[in-house]
Design a protein around this nucleic acid. Structure first.
Length: 479
RNA sequence: CGGCGUGUGGCUCAGUUUGGUAGAGCGCUACGUUCGGGACGUAGAAGCCGCAGGUUCAAAUCCUGUCACGCCGACCA
């Protein structure tokens, strides 16, 4: 009863209006606020702390593979952006331009980086001379600007935070290996840390990055059955190298073009966390990424000794390495419960006079709502176990959702029916012709998400045109 | 870029049709009583009614323009 009332009053339920539910969560869990420019957002402490945790863990994993961090300027001269034809065509419609410096018009206008391939290339052409200079494994953490027409917090904002790795290699094989290595790193990060299972695969030519030879992607499935491209890794071959003149002398003193990659992952992933795990009570954060893993909520806090006990427990848990906060506000317990749930804090610990008398406390899991009475003695061990358990269970729940919403289509009627009426991924064969992708998009608004690494031969012919097909594609509606 | 919608205390909105000194709830501040699922009382603070022109004795309200935000569509790594 009480739960029902709470839902109605606070946030729109998922089933009623998923988009509104998302907006409600983003605002009410205080992840962001809208800013005064369309499509720009203030990332508030709760949201930024999430990004910091993503950064911390990803950065550590990057560095383990030899990647170094650098910082490039945020402006790109127009002439530089023009150098790679496909690239500029891909990005031109959505770049923001700086035309004035102070009151004077600039001789050459500057684009605010939508991505930094051209800057890295311009830098590499002077930095790389010899095979000894390779590979170059650089990454930068920064924001980029894309003048999107339709915007949504985290999912598509005009300015967003991300990391972009840019590497240069001596051979095509090295570049390909790095491309896949980083895609696998992203996938492992999503599953192990964010509890988000992903489908790894290659993009079709229609969907690949402007200027890339091949684009690889991790695709996650949101609670509403729509796909979210959650990270990409591109192999550029030597296309950019040729456009920018990035050459090195090999061991035989012959000039060779480098082979490059780039890979990126953005604050969009926070939108993914919300839409994979959240529910009608609010956000639900996996323990490994949660800025606060446990909130201590005292009951009857004015009673003798309660606050003292709550503080003591907070200190004990903190000492055990758990990210813990004590809610010492003078709100009622019910309010505090709802607040902790809204913010997605994985565990809460309730401690009141009754508990103290019995030498125990109550732990409540955010993911299942399960209440667990626990002796105060050794509570930190129990909490650690539970956090681990929650992390695992959340991944399992997300995997189950992904599996249950991935379907197979053998005929076009079946395909359209699944896309239109079921939501989720549909696996179907494709001939490789872009005309079929276009028709499918026209008929259903679904797009090819990727050609997964794990292929299966479902039928022998293309779902759309009936011509022979060897590629199995994940299709779906996407964010 | 097209369609629709919205701008009034921090938030959600009423008031606009029919012009007449700015309203409510929530939140906020102080004190007190409460506390195991969104507590209550009392007292308070807080608003160039998005912006600019115009009409009028008088504009949140009428007229013109403009800006911004949201949703849908088209577009989009």
């Amino acid at each position: 009863m009480a739960e029902q009332k709470k839902l109605v009053e606070e946030i729109t339920s998922m089933s009623e209006d998923f988009a509104q539910w998302y907006t409600d969560i983003v605002k009410k869990a205080e992840l962001i606020d809208y800013a005064s420019v369309k499509g720009c957002m203030v990332i508030k402490p709760a949201g930024y702390a999430l990004w910091e945790n993503i950064q911390k863990e990803l950065d550590r994993r990057f560095k383990e593979t030899g990647v170094e961090n650098v910082y490039m300027p945020m402006f790109i001269p127009e002439s530089l952006l023009q150098k790679e034809k496909d690239h500029v065509e891909g990005f031109a419609p959505e770049v923001a331009w700086v035309t004035h410096g102070g009151l004077e018009p600039l001789q050459e206008r500057l684009c605010v980086r939508p991505t930094s391939e051209t800057l890295f290339c311009d830098f590499y052409k002077d930095e790389i001379h010899s095979w000894r200079d390779l590979p170059k494994l650089y990454n930068q953490w920064c924001s980029v600007v894309r003048w999107e027409k339709t915007t949504r917090p985290f999912l598509r904002s005009r300015e967003f935070l991300w990391q972009e790795g840019h590497t240069a290699h001596a051979t095509a094989e090295d570049a390909q290996e790095r491309t896949i290595q980083m895609l696998n790193l992203y996938a492992a990060f999503c599953e192990e840390v964010l509890a988000i299972p992903v489908v790894k695969g290659r993009k079709t030519d229609k969907e690949k990055f402007a200027g890339a030879e091949a684009t690889y992607t991790i695709e996650a499935l949101m609670h509403d059955g729509k796909a979210l491209q959650s990270g990409t890794s591109h192999n550029f071959g030597n296309g950019f190298a040729k456009a920018f003149g990035i050459q090195y002398a090999d061991k035989e003193n012959k000039l060779q073009y480098v082979h490059q990659t780039s890979w990126g992952l953005s604050t969009r992933l926070i939108g993914g966390i919300i839409m994979v795990h959240g529910d009608d009570s609010g956000l639900k954060l996996p323990p490994r990424i949660a800025p606060v893993q446990l909130r201590v909520i005292p009951i009857q806090q004015k009673k003798e000794g309660v606050m003292e006990k709550a503080s003591e427990l907070t200190a004990v848990l903190k000492a055990a390495g758990i990210r813990v906060k004590l809610d010492d506000t003078d709100k009622s317990p019910g309010f505090k419960f709802a607040d902790q749930e809204m913010r997605g804090i994985p565990l809460r610990l309730e401690i009141g006079p009754k508990d103290m008398e019995a030498g125990r406390c109550v732990l409540v899991r955010r993911d299942t709502g399960e209440k667990i009475e626990t002796p105060l003695d050794g509570v930190e061990k129990k909490v650690s176990e539970l956090l681990e358990q929650i992390q695992n269970d959340m991944l399992e729940a997300a995997r189950k959702h992904l599996a249950e919403n991935t379907r197979v289509a053998k005929t076009y009627e079946e395909f359209c029916d699944l896309i239109n009426n079921k939501s989720g991924f549909v696996k179907a064969m494709w001939c490789g012709d872009q005309a079929c992708e276009d028709k499918i998009k026209e008929d259903t608004t679904a797009t090819s998400r990727c050609m997964p690494f794990e292929q299966e031969q479902i039928t022998d012919t293309c779902i759309c045109c009936g011509k022979p097909a060897t590629k199995m594609v994940y299709w779906g509606k996407a964010y």
